[in-house]
């Protein structure tokens, strides 16, 4: 593959780096408690929490590093951090 002239790159390539393997704890979203406030999406440093068609959070576990901010900041305590089984 030709290298980007002057060490340049086009968008998209960072997704090749799957940071999900960094995780020790996994956020599990308890949809019954969710008020669809969007806080988890807003605070996620990975930008890997999306909302589905019903406005409920969906995580891309390929990238979630398990930092726990979503669980910590969720006003409805609708995210549980569970130990990842490796």
């Amino acid at each position: 593959m030709a290298m980007g002239l002057g060490c340049t790159a086009r968008p998209g390539r960072s997704r090749e780096n799957k940071t999900g393997s960094w995780r020790v704890f996994r956020p599990v979203f308890v949809h019954e408690k969710c008020t669809r406030c969007g806080m988890c999406t807003t605070v996620c440093p990975e930008g890997c929490i999306m909302e589905d068609e019903e406005g409920l959070p969906v995580t891309d576990y390929d990238y979630c590093k398990g930092c726990g901010l979503c669980a910590e900041e969720c006003p409805s305590e609708a995210v549980e951090m569970t130990k990842e089984e490796k």
Binding site: S14, N17, T19, W22, P45, G47, C48, I49, D60, C67
Partner: peptide
Amino acid sequence: ACVLFDSGHRACAG
């Protein structure tokens, strides 16, 4: 918010 700064970066968790 997720769209313009992509996943896969190498920042510390949190």
